[in-house]
Nucleic acid binder design. Structure first.
Lengths: 94, 94
DNA sequence: AATAATGTTATCATATTTGATAACATTATT
DNA sequence: AATAATGTTATCAAATATGATAACATTATT
């Protein structure tokens, strides 16, 4: 096999990875989108994670965990957090 | 106590109920909003729950359960279902 | 530099979602 | 009216979210 061939394999592998990444990214995009909106709102309002946790009725560690994007939040949880920041959740499909 | 007084209590109770209802409704609104969008998209595309389930990688009973609004879906689940209908989930806080 | 405030991570217990299966109900088709 | 297609409900097991607590890390304040 030529070096070009090898290179192609490598490139293909890269592209595959990129596609996987893209698919994975598309899946996680809504999560990161809503998280960054929440964080932004919290910062704008100068509210600490602890204060937000208090309003939501949970612990600051749980807010941190949520903001880290390390798990798949439920819709109700998003609604609760948004509401505690004086906001409403709006979802639509396009 | 006058009848008017009694009536007032009753009305107040009703209003309280309405408030509770309103709060509850506000909490559940996003859920019902996204569900109806999903159902509408599925119907428009003439796809059965079974076909949608197949695409999502689950069972038709689970799609039915989801569409019934009887539980609190995760964001990933919403993304998967939307994607299976050729749509993307968009969330924002207002 | 010391202290306080804020945020992070790990872990456990509990509740809930999700997948799967099957029986049943409703609606459409022939 | 009979059959097929579609949707619903109940139930179980497994995976995961969520709440809680505590120890730690980072950042801001004095």
């Amino acid at each position: 096999m030529s070096k070009a061939g090898i290179k192609f394999e490598v490139i293909k592998e890269q592209l595959m990875k990129d596609d996987e990444f893209k698919v994975e990214y598309e899946k996680l995009k809504p999560r990161y989108e809503i998280i960054s909106q929440i964080i932004e709102a919290r910062n704008t309002q100068h509210i600490t994670q602890e204060e937000l946790a208090l309003r939501v009725g949970t612990q600051k560690s749980n807010i941190s965990r949520f903001e880290s994007g390390s798990y798949n939040p439920s819709l109700d949880f998003l609604v609760k957090v948004a509401k505690s920041l004086g906001k409403e959740i709006h979802i639509e499909i396009r």
